[in-house]
């Protein structure tokens, strides 16, 4: 059930922010993947330099749509996979974290037509700090030009949800990391200006297979669960 998936994952989804003195600025979404404080997100939302922080989400009950102040936790980048556009972050302080026994799936868990949930802070850039759950189906499983396994799904992802988890409803497991909207012009061959990504007008978005996230965890010597 969608509700159960939300309840399972809402505590694990976090806002990624960049720190500048006493204030923080929203960048996108990340989600917890390991007991020791590791989070997964997409690499392209992260700044080249500067300090990063993450903020846990609210409970799912009525909360103010915007927050003037937050209580973020400092993180640093552990590993980046530029080919797959993934980044592994780690919380800097020791924090007591409880995770479900099993939550990282594989891209084999879903087929085109499978129901998935999109979780992310869609409108973080607009200073709105609610975690949003969206319902979608897998539209296609495609291999990109650099041979990355991507999951297309029929939901219009907003910039703030980038880095959030794509979760299969049937199994309740993460199957992908949300990357952004799917732009057929960009995916087509002769397109040069990458900066127009946001203007592409389809309601299809894509996520990178979680298997690459697994690889990243394993490269760090961690066991995904």
């Amino acid at each position: 059930m969608l509700k159960n998936v939300y309840q399972k994952y809402s505590g694990g989804a976090m806002m990624v922010m960049s720190r500048d003195g006493d204030s923080v600025t929203f960048l996108g979404t990340a989600f917890l993947v390991h007991q020791d404080g590791f989070l997964l997100t997409v690499a392209h939302i992260l700044p080249k330099e500067g300090r990063l922080m993450v903020v846990a989400s609210d409970s799912g009950d009525f909360q103010p749509v915007t927050q003037e102040t937050v209580t973020p936790l400092p993180v640093h980048i552990v590993r980046v996979d530029a080919e797959r556009d993934l980044a592994l972050l780690k919380l800097e302080k020791d924090i007591d974290i409880r995770l479900p026994d099993h939550f990282i799936g594989t891209d084999e868990s879903v087929l085109p037509g499978s129901s998935v949930m999109v979780l992310g802070f869609s409108f973080g850039h607009y200073h709105l700090h609610s975690l949003l759950a969206l319902n979608a189906v897998i539209s296609a499983k495609v291999l990109s030009r650099n041979k990355s396994r991507l999951l297309l799904f029929d939901s219009m992802v907003h910039p703030g949800a980038r880095g959030g988890p794509l979760i299969s409803i049937d199994e309740g497991l993460v199957v992908g990391v949300i990357n952004g909207r799917f732009d057929p012009v960009e995916a087509g061959k002769d397109y040069t200006d990458g900066s127009r990504t946001q203007l592409a007008n389809t309601n299809i978005s894509f996520a990178v297979s979680i298997d690459y996230g697994r690889d990243l965890l394993e490269a760090e010597g961690l066991t995904p669960r």
Binding site: Y9, S23, V24, T25, E68, T71, L73, I95
Partner: peptide, 19 residues
């Protein structure tokens, strides 16, 4: 089950700067 995180000490507050 769900994700729960409990910071050891109360984290400090930061102001959110709009994009």
């Amino acid at each position: 089950q769900s994700f729960e995180i409990t910071p050891e000490s109360k984290p400090r507050e930061f102001r959110v700067r709009p994009t």
